[in-house]
């Protein structure tokens, strides 16, 4: 009888997680064992070199502007899981102050990702989470838009100027950077980097991927935009697209846009701000 009682009480306690000390501290001091952390933005080869959409349009970008603010990096334990959708609670939390409008199309395939900013002295450790907000620019060629692309789209004998602007604001929470190399490890006196990555293939698809893969099934391709061409130019924003696009296509566009932001190949939890 006693043994049964013991068993039932142990089972009711669940795993050993319940009594874990979840108290967190925020340490923004600059100790001697600090290092440098660079924060980059990257549109990958799709934006730098161009690509062919899922429906066969060759798209090359003259400019691809994004405007970012409220960028913050974190050391979290346990590692932040963006699937949870929870706020990021960091043992160490370091903001990168400022609002930055960046042209991800600058350079060529040999160019390094665009440097947003450098945190010169951050506590050593693994920065395994990051958050940022994408907002409309208040000046310059992308004024009024959080994303603004100036591109050329070609297919057969068709060649269109493309200027697409998206006005919405987005708040992202990302876990660890995922890519060829693991990033975010700052050692005392050392230097590493993190990256905010934009996957424009989520919008237009990628002909190099299988036709029935999720990316190409869910993306729009370029045809819905090409249909809006006037005098060789496609120049639209979300306001005009709402009027001109079929409702289903516009709804899909609005669903896709938040998914452009990543940390490398790591997916994010995104909140659309209106």
């Amino acid at each position: 009888m006693s043994a049964l009682l013991i068993l039932s009480l142990v089972v009711s306690c669940g795993s050993g997680e319940a009594d874990r000390d979840v108290s967190q501290i925020t340490d923004n001091s600059q100790p001697e064992d600090a290092g440098e952390l660079r924060i980059n933005a990257n549109g990958e080869d799709f934006v730098i070199s161009g690509f062919v959409s899922s429906d066969g349009w060759h798209i090359t970008f003259r400019h691809f502007y994004v405007t970012l603010t409220d960028i913050t990096v974190y050391q979290t334990d346990p590692p932040y899981d963006p699937h949870s959708g929870k706020e990021i609670t960091g043992i160490v939390t370091v903001p990168l102050d400022g609002t930055f409008t960046l042209d991800l199309a600058e350079g060529d395939e040999n160019t390094e990702p665009v440097l947003i900013g450098t945190l010169d002295s951050v506590p050593a450790g693994h920065y395994n989470a990051m958050s940022w907000t994408m907002i409309p620019s208040v000046e310059g060629p992308s004024e009024g838009y959080s994303i603004y692309m100036d591109a050329q789209a070609e297919k057969g004998n068709q060649s269109y100027n493309v200027r697409l602007g998206f006005e919405d604001s987005y708040s992202y929470r990302a876990g660890e950077y995922i890519g060829d190399v693991r990033k975010g490890f700052v050692t005392p006196g050392g230097s590493d980097e993190l990256e905010i990555t934009f996957h424009v293939d989520h919008l237009f698809g990628d002909i190099e991927q299988p036709e029935d893969c999720e990316l190409n099934v869910t993306s729009l391709g370029f045809a819905p935009f090409a249909e809006l061409m006037q005098e060789g130019t496609v120049e639209e924003d979300l306001v005009s697209l709402l009027e001109k696009m079929p409702e289903e296509t516009y709804t899909r566009l609005k669903e896709i846009l938040p998914t452009l932001g990543h940390s490398g190949e790591g997916h994010c939890y995104c909140t659309v701000l209106q």
């Binding site: 907000t133 907002i135 999720e214 998914t259 997916h267 995104c270 209106q274």
Partner: peptide
């Protein structure tokens, strides 16, 4: 290009979206 931080009126209504991904 770094531009001045200007006040923005955001989050009047917000809804979450999760990038499609992997498990």
């Amino acid at each position: 290009m770094k531009i001045p931080v200007l006040p923005f009126v955001l989050a009047v209504a917000a809804y979450p979206v999760f990038s499609h991904g992997v498990n």
